[in-house]
Simulated scan of single mutants.
Amino acid sequence: MDGTFILLQDYTFQTVALGSALLGMISGVLGSFAVLRKQSLLGDGVSHSALPGVVIAFILLGSKNSEILLLGALISGLLSTLFIITIVRHSRIKFDSALALVMSVFFGLGLVLLTYVQKLPNSNQAGLKRFIFGQASTLLQRDIILMGICGTLLLALVLLFWKEFKLFTFDSDFAHSLGFSPKRLNLLLSFMIVLAIIIGLQTVGVILMSAMLVTPAVAARQWTNKLWVMVTLSAFLGAISGAVGTAASSLVPKLPTGPAIVVCISAILIISVLFAPGRGILHRLYRRRKNRILYKLEGGMPNDPAN
């Protein structure tokens, strides 16, 4: 108990926990729309495609400043998203195939460039690998401020375009008939998802970022059919997972923060899938068994000698 109290007062823990909670909240909100639009894999593709942007930004500017590297990742992620949208729109290639193609090309290019940078005769390139697996312990106050600014901007856009996003997510044809442009809404929402992914790379890395985007939304979807409830619950679950995962990594020696956060939200997902009323597996089995019993009772009544 004393160890937990001391941990809560530690400045480093407060910084990392706040950053992880902000990431979980932002990912939960934007991930809800990605899941409902059946574009859950977009987070995986964009996060992997951001790697070459990080390395190219370092090669061109020779700086490991987080803002510069994340700007390079943002440009690379936006380019990959535009490539995916263009391929799907102007060819017969399906979304999942286009995403896999672009993701593999960008991620392969990123690994090649990273290998090249590591062979340079200086040590300034050390630390770039943290964008692959994440390293939440390196978060600084300025990183939290950047995440807060970007998160506030993204949440403000969600509130501002709530009606449009809701119509576009569930019925794009109806939204188009009302005068809304599905192409522009798709580009805006995709840009917001990309930005949410980029700001989380330093915390969980390109490999686990897709889990942060999708898992809270899928878990929240099991508990409700209302969009605003799902978005709110997804943001809450993401924030709680970020804080709890950070605490677990601080209390358990050599436990990395990013994987701990993902394991935490995955545990919440398993509980939701099993026990959620209506959609939960156990609830469905119970309802099916109850209906089977009622059917047998009703079917046996005409043959009952008492009748």
Rank of each mutant, 00 (worst) to 15 (best):
T246V: 08
P253I: 01
T246P: 06
A248G: 08
P253A: 05
C264I: 05
V244C: 06
T246F: 03
P253K: 09
S266W: 10
V244E: 03
K254E: 15
P259N: 09
S266Q: 07
S249W: 00
V263Q: 15
I265A: 13
I261P: 01
S250K: 10
T257L: 08
S249K: 02
S266F: 13
T257E: 06
G242T: 10
P256M: 03
G245Y: 09
P256R: 02
K254W: 12
T246G: 06
G242D: 06
L251A: 04
L237R: 10
S249L: 02
P259F: 02
K254P: 10
A248E: 04
G245D: 04
A235F: 02
G258M: 11
A260W: 00
I265T: 14
S266A: 11
V252W: 13
G245W: 05
I265S: 06
F236M: 13
L255A: 01
T257D: 07
V262F: 07
G258F: 00
P253L: 00
I240M: 14
K254M: 14
G258D: 01
T246H: 02
G242R: 04
T257F: 01
A239S: 03
A267V: 15
V263F: 15
S250E: 11
I270L: 14
L255D: 05
V263W: 15
L255C: 05
C264G: 04
S241Q: 04
P259W: 04
A235C: 00
I271S: 12
S266P: 08
L251F: 05
I265D: 07
I270V: 15
V262P: 01
V244Y: 04
V252A: 13
A267F: 14
L255I: 00
A243S: 12
A235K: 01
L237Y: 08
S234R: 08
S234G: 12
I270H: 14
S234Q: 10
F236E: 10
C264F: 09
S266D: 05
L251Y: 03
V262T: 09
V263I: 15
A247F: 00
A248D: 11
A267W: 12
A243Y: 13
V244D: 03
L237I: 11
S266E: 12
K254I: 11
A267Y: 13
V244P: 03
L255Q: 00
K254N: 15
S241W: 03
A239D: 02
C264A: 09
A243K: 09
G245A: 10
T257I: 13
P256N: 01
G242W: 05
G245Q: 09
C264N: 11
T257G: 10
A243L: 11
S272Q: 00
S250T: 09
I240V: 15
V252R: 07
I261M: 12
G238C: 06
I270E: 12
G242Q: 07
G242S: 05
L269S: 13
L237D: 00
L251M: 05
C264Y: 01
K254H: 15
P256H: 00
